[in-house]
Nucleic acid binder design. Structure first.
Lengths: 115, 115
DNA sequence: TCGGTCGCCTACCGGATGGTAGGAGCGTCG
DNA sequence: CGACGCTCCTACCATCCGGTAGGCGACCGA
């Protein structure tokens, strides 16, 4: 990913921008967890199985930097919630992506790579 | 990402499965490039700006292993094209993701992270 | 006041990912 | 036949991501 050159073909730039939104594997999981409503950080740690303290912190930082997640409360009772932008992403493309994965998960593992 | 435990909340598993589909940043770009029709490997290298030989090979291998991309031709004139599964992914969730990124790209970079 | 919990940060390490360079095998064209 | 192009593989290396461990300050209930 050298630069943002988009002269190659239509929508290349959009695809790359979209890819960057979710290239960090934990970000969509965190976003999905936040769809249930404003959540305290501690609650996220238990709700998202297998996530570590550091990874959650970094995911939240990234999502906040992109304006997808808002933070309320100070040091003690920090509460995270989706911004309007984050909601439109989580309920739109992300939900459809998850839906597609759910509908086609049986066809994915099959792979045979004949040739 | 320790294992596939899905007991935490609804659609967690789907979100993670979807995340794995696109966690490799180049895969969606390659898929998007293949939406234009069957393409020779050499053509992909020039069409996708900034991709290296090795990365394209690995992306194509992953996509083939998941059944999203099919390969025609042998050593010399290899031609890659989307499988029906790959088409349904590229024209569905992936296209919507790119569309969302295009619609909201002006709101994304703004970030301020006040608190 | 004193633990205990919580948010957040740092340092380190192993594995994965991506870039570069070089080469082997195969086909095509002069 | 010989040169060239294309596919694909193998190193090697830089960088990044995620996991673990430990620590600091803030808050809260006893």
């Amino acid at each position: 990913m050298i630069d943002g050159s988009c002269e190659t073909f239509v929508s290349d730039c959009q695809v790359r921008a979209a890819a960057e939104l979710i290239s960090h594997a934990w970000d969509p999981v965190v976003l999905s967890a936040l769809r249930l409503g404003p959540t305290r950080r501690r609650e996220l740690l238990t709700r998202i199985a297998g996530v570590s303290d550091k990874v959650l912190t970094e995911a939240l930082r990234r999502l906040r930097a992109r304006g997808l997640v808002l933070k309320g409360g100070g040091q003690a009772g920090a509460v995270y919630r989706l911004s309007p932008l984050g909601e439109s992403f989580a309920n739109g493309p992300l939900a459809q992506l998850a839906q597609w994965a759910a509908d086609n998960q049986d066809k994915l593992a099959a792979s045979s790579v004949t040739s």
